[in-house]
Amino acid sequence: MKLSQATTMLDAAHDEARRRGVRVCISILDAQAWPMAFIRMDGAPLGVIDVANRKARTAVLFQMDSADFARIGHPAGEAYMLEHTNGGLTSFGGGVVLRAADGGMLGGIGVSGASTQDDIDIARIAAATLVA
């Protein structure tokens, strides 16, 4: 992933969060789960910094959206407690896998600070800029 792609996604996510009137943290990681871009909106709680990073990390390391990861990581799921591996993951929505047009892995985006559905929607809107 190029820095220009990461900043375009960051801007799109930030704009959507402002439009919705929510304060979030947005974390974008490359395909090796290293940071590319990050923003903490004014007023976003400090605790969601780590959550946004873990959502993006979960998406990258397991190559699935964190909402999908939640289906296997919950107490009745087939991989309960998996979120405690790899230095800490998260098992709720807001982390989205970022893929190139050919399906290749580019990285992940994590959004945290609003409702789970808003976090997911904001992340997907940002991810959509990759193919725009």
Results as ranks from 00 to 15, higher is better:
1 M>S: 12
5 Q>M: 14
6 A>C: 07
6 A>R: 06
7 T>V: 15
7 T>S: 14
8 T>R: 15
9 M>H: 02
10 L>E: 02
14 H>V: 07
15 D>V: 12
17 A>E: 04
18 R>V: 13
20 R>M: 14
21 G>V: 08
21 G>L: 12
22 V>L: 01
22 V>I: 08
23 R>A: 12
23 R>V: 09
24 V>P: 01
25 C>W: 00
26 I>G: 00
27 S>Q: 09
27 S>L: 00
30 D>Q: 06
31 A>D: 15
31 A>L: 08
31 A>W: 05
32 Q>E: 13
33 A>D: 13
34 W>H: 10
34 W>V: 09
36 M>L: 14
37 A>E: 09
37 A>M: 07
38 F>R: 10
38 F>E: 09
40 R>H: 03
40 R>N: 04
42 D>C: 00
42 D>H: 02
42 D>W: 00
42 D>M: 00
43 G>L: 08
44 A>N: 10
45 P>G: 11
47 G>A: 14
48 V>I: 12
48 V>G: 02
48 V>P: 05
49 I>F: 03
50 D>L: 03
52 A>I: 07
52 A>L: 09
53 N>E: 11
53 N>C: 10
54 R>A: 09
55 K>C: 00
55 K>I: 01
56 A>E: 01
58 T>Q: 05
59 A>F: 07
60 V>A: 13
61 L>S: 12
61 L>F: 10
61 L>E: 13
62 F>V: 02
62 F>G: 01
62 F>M: 05
63 Q>M: 14
63 Q>F: 04
63 Q>E: 13
64 M>V: 05
68 D>R: 15
69 F>P: 04
71 R>K: 15
73 G>Y: 02
73 G>I: 01
73 G>C: 12
74 H>G: 09
74 H>W: 13
74 H>K: 11
76 A>L: 14
76 A>K: 14
77 G>P: 07
79 A>I: 03
79 A>E: 14
79 A>V: 02
80 Y>Q: 08
80 Y>E: 09
80 Y>I: 03
80 Y>P: 01
81 M>W: 13
82 L>P: 08
84 H>W: 11
86 N>R: 14
87 G>M: 08
88 G>M: 04
89 L>S: 10
89 L>A: 09
90 T>I: 13
91 S>M: 08
92 F>P: 00
92 F>A: 04
93 G>H: 07
94 G>M: 00
94 G>V: 01
96 V>H: 04
96 V>I: 15
97 V>A: 09
97 V>P: 02
98 L>Q: 13
99 R>L: 04
99 R>F: 07
100 A>H: 11
101 A>T: 14
102 D>P: 06
102 D>T: 11
102 D>M: 06
105 M>G: 03
106 L>Q: 10
108 G>E: 07
108 G>I: 03
110 G>E: 08
110 G>Q: 06
111 V>C: 05
111 V>L: 01
112 S>Q: 00
113 G>A: 04
114 A>T: 06
115 S>V: 01
115 S>W: 02
117 Q>V: 12
118 D>G: 04
119 D>E: 03
121 D>C: 04
122 I>N: 08
122 I>H: 02
123 A>D: 11
123 A>E: 07
125 I>D: 02
126 A>L: 00
127 A>D: 09
128 A>T: 10
130 L>W: 11
130 L>K: 07
132 A>D: 12
132 A>V: 10
